[in-house]
Design a protein around this nucleic acid. Structure first.
Lengths: 232, 232
DNA sequence: GCTCGTTTCAAACGACCGTTTGAATGATAC
DNA sequence: GTATCATTCAAACGGTCGTTTGAAACGAGC
């Protein structure tokens, strides 16, 4: 079995991927057993090892199935803006839209599993497992530098490393918002509109932009601060 | 190794808690086995079940050991500001300081394990396990409503549910910043100052405040926005 | 000396893990 | 029908999991 294998398969592969995706969100990778997955998918236990080779390979395929498309969408959104700009630096909100807007739109798709996947992806950014982290880094290798560069050009007055940190902060805010575990039950009583994904985008994007464009720590803060804790 | 020196019993409980805390950060709850913990702690395998009862109970004690103190520190910081304000609403930056500033200061303590714990805590906000989520919710039950109220008073013009969402976003940004897995290796080449926890606070706090005070989606954005994507 | 309650220890327990096996099944082409 | 191939299936594999056990070691009081 070499190149001809991935040709025709009934829906067994897809059903395994769907079941695994949902269960990984519910219980995490470790706690999701092969028997749980095959049970929900309605296939034989051995099907996973037959079709994917191992549990690790299954995990990677669960991500690959959607992440490749997502990153291509992010890149093409960025390129569309860059084409419009004709060499001029992009606006910060365009870059944020290209990366996070596209992501949020995928998270809004509850019918084809995009929502489930984005919850999984958000949760996985904090995954300790080494091979998952390495895999994610590889998948993002083509995307991250492009967005880095765009942000550097868009914010020439902000130190590059500060920009990278803020990108990191934005990623964290979005991931939590989508993963939406809400461990602290902050928004427990408003669960209704949590289901409205368009609303999430309307809430999150201003927050991200506000954070990205916030004045730096050293800059004047209108002399509001009375007790400088350590004199930066 | 140095079993001759460790013959004395420097509180087996604490050594187990320390080892477990570090290993949970490294590998997560599921992948951290009792044998790994007792091995690193230099105690017998049965010691965990003897001193804590079960693995679940150990996990809860790992959190309780520091989280109770942390939440009390958050509350007392808030109360100190409220005392100063003499009934007037607090400034947003004071509330953010009371909650996130205190957290970041604990994360800055690399000597007594505060840093390790905050990484664990940040990662755990996305933990799928039901009993961990319930436990966290209980631990925060006394803290969250107080900060909610303070924020509502501080930002009377912002809809309450919007404030809760932004609190959620801030929590996400901080958690990622501290957990700091950096799956996308955004700041890989700047790992040096990642170790400086004071720098993290200087970077994160402006971001959080910028996001918290950002104009709402419906409000005017200085006519910068040219392509209203959906006309909120 | 001995007792008693606490803590440590090596060994084992049953359950469940991911994976493998070899036979049964199904579809396709001759 | 027969041969060929991919797929499914029940059953079992060796390991590792969290937990339990009963005995050994320890320390304080007498």
């Amino acid at each position: 079995m070499s190149l001809t294998e991935a040709k025709q398969n009934p829906d067994t592969r897809e059903r395994i991927l769907d079941a695994a995706e949902a269960l990984f969100v519910e219980h995490g990778f470790e706690a999701t057993t092969m028997r749980l997955i095959t049970g929900r998918a309605g296939v034989n236990l051995a099907a996973i090892n037959y079709h994917f080779g191992s549990k690790e390979a299954l995990i990677q395929d669960v991500f690959r199935r959607r992440l490749t498309w997502l990153n291509e969408a992010r890149l093409s959104a960025l390129e569309r803006f860059e084409k419009e700009a004709r060499g001029a630096p992009l606006k910060p909100h365009q870059i944020v839209e290209a990366f996070f807007g596209v992501s949020l739109r995928m998270a809004a798709d509850t019918e084809h599993g995009g929502h489930t996947f984005m919850r999984l992806l958000g949760r996985t950014y904090t995954e300790p497992s080494a091979f998952v982290r390495q895999f994610l880094a590889d998948e993002y290798a083509a995307v991250v530098p492009r967005f880095k560069q765009a942000l550097f050009r868009a914010l020439p007055d902000v130190p590059p490393e500060e920009i990278l940190w803020r990108f990191h902060f934005m990623l964290g805010a979005m991931s939590y918002a989508i993963a939406g575990t809400d461990a602290l039950q902050l928004v427990a009583e408003h669960e209704l509109d949590e289901k409205d994904p368009e609303a999430l985008s309307r809430r999150l994007m201003p927050f991200l932009l506000g954070g990205l464009r916030a004045p730096l720590a050293g800059q004047a803060v209108k002399a509001k601060e009375k007790t400088p804790r350590k004199a930066a």
